[in-house]
């Protein structure tokens, strides 16, 4: 159980998907203007990332490895992710049309989020068991959501600040992102401690 906890902390904080692996940067910059939308996007990504990692693990173990089709891994995983997004969209529409109105906008964005594919590839490279792989994907996506919400909170505050014209907009956002990345580097001490 201790190994699980350490692995999950490592995936969420030390090797954060956004700030350490630099994946999913388009949604990191594009959907973080409000905390609400960042949290909505983060939760949707968490769901899709975890479920697609579960399916990808099964596909890798029982299809690609069993039939020696490793060269099809990337394209197969992309297909799995797109299918998971479509499945999620269908399920949410079935659960509640109102929920679909509110949340449907984020789902197509997730299909093109490289962080989802990146985590799926890391999961199979890690050669972990099924539950460990799922927990790793879940922890990675929690780290993704955490950074999205923190960054959105900072940008909400920044919107009220008197930023010099030269730095207004994306430049100050990038500076902020770099400071946040440096702050997260502090977690790397956990892995060596």
């Amino acid at each position: 159980m201790k190994e699980f906890a350490l692995m999950m902390i490592g995936a969420a904080l030390v090797n954060n998907v956004i700030l350490a692996r630099f994946l999913g940067l388009c949604s990191f910059m594009g959907v973080t203007t409000r905390i609400d939308t960042a949290a909505g996007m983060g939760l949707a990504t968490t769901f899709v990332m975890t479920v697609s990692a579960m399916i990808d693990w099964g596909v890798q173990r029982y299809l690609l490895e069993a039939w020696d089709l490793g060269y099809l891994r990337t394209i197969t995983f992309i297909l799995v992710i797109a299918s998971t997004v479509q499945f999620t969209e269908l399920v949410i529409r079935k659960i509640s049309p109102t929920l679909f109105q509110m949340l449907g906008i984020y789902l197509p964005l997730i299909a093109t989020n490289c962080a989802v594919l990146g985590v799926a590839l890391l999961v199979v490279e890690g050669r972990m068991g099924f539950v460990a792989s799922t927990m790793f994907a879940f922890a990675s996506s929690v780290g993704f959501s955490l950074v999205m919400v923190i960054f959105a909170g900072l940008r909400e505050r920044l919107a009220l600040a008197n930023v010099p014209q030269l730095f207004a907009g994306p430049p100050i956002a990038f500076i902020l992102a770099s400071l946040l990345a440096m702050a997260f580097m502090g977690f790397s001490g956990i892995s060596t401690g």
Binding site: G40, A44, T46, S96
Partner: peptide, 10 residues
């Protein structure tokens, strides 16, 4: 939005 996302995903 948060309540909806928590219900649908979490």
């Amino acid at each position: 939005l948060i309540k909806a996302a928590l219900t649908a995903y979490a």
